[in-house]
Simulated scan of single mutants.
Amino acid sequence: MFASLFVLLYLGHLLADYPLQTDHQAAHKADRCATGWAANLTHAATHVTTCAVALALGALVLDDVALSLPVAVTALAWIGASHAFIDRRWPVARWMNRTGQASWAKHGGAAHVDQTAHVLALVLAALALAA
């Protein structure tokens, strides 16, 4: 069940991060103002929604996906909160600066570390759902 759950959550993530993320959200989600927080939280809500839809569809059509509503709600809240936190951009920048990756960050590496952090959050959510 873990693999099915992870694929469903990853699909929801990809949809929310790429075709469903607006230019405004991408440009402003890390801004330190009300506009930035609104863009960030709207983007995180898109993640929660797409992952919820993916999980619901998976539960309907896949034999190996059985969900507990309280655990699913908790996992979706985790996905939204972790995504909003990571997308403030400073956590990734701080990680890269403290681990000797500042040069890589200047050459596009931050996007890879950002996506890796999101995938880790999805794996944790899928593990909780499968437990």
Rank of each mutant, 00 (worst) to 15 (best):
R88E: 14
T49M: 10
L5S: 04
H107L: 15
T49E: 03
K106L: 15
L124P: 06
Q25V: 08
V92G: 04
H112N: 06
H13Y: 08
H47N: 07
I86V: 09
W95A: 03
Y10D: 00
A128N: 04
A81H: 01
N97R: 15
H13E: 09
L129V: 06
G100L: 11
L57F: 07
H24M: 14
A84T: 04
F2H: 12
R94Y: 10
A81D: 00
P70L: 09
C33R: 13
A117Q: 10
A84M: 07
G58V: 02
P91A: 09
G80L: 13
H112Y: 14
A110S: 13
A128L: 15
L67F: 11
S103C: 12
L127M: 10
H83S: 03
A30Q: 00
V48S: 04
A27G: 01
A93D: 09
D17M: 02
L67G: 01
A121Q: 00
T22R: 11
T49Q: 01
V71H: 10
N40R: 15
K106N: 06
Q101K: 14
A84V: 01
A72E: 02
Y18D: 11
G36I: 08
H107T: 09
A3V: 14
A27V: 05
A117V: 08
L67H: 05
L120Y: 12
C51I: 09
A117M: 15
T42F: 04
D63G: 11
N97T: 14
V73F: 14
S82Y: 07
L41N: 11
W95V: 06
A16W: 03
H43F: 14
A16S: 10
L122G: 03
G36W: 07
S103Q: 12
A110H: 10
A26L: 11
R98S: 15
A45V: 07
L120C: 14
W90Y: 13
C51Q: 12
G12W: 05
Y10I: 04
L11P: 02
A131P: 05
L14Y: 11
Q25P: 02
A125I: 04
L5A: 06
D17S: 05
M1R: 05
R98C: 07
A39N: 05
L120D: 02
L76G: 00
G100P: 08
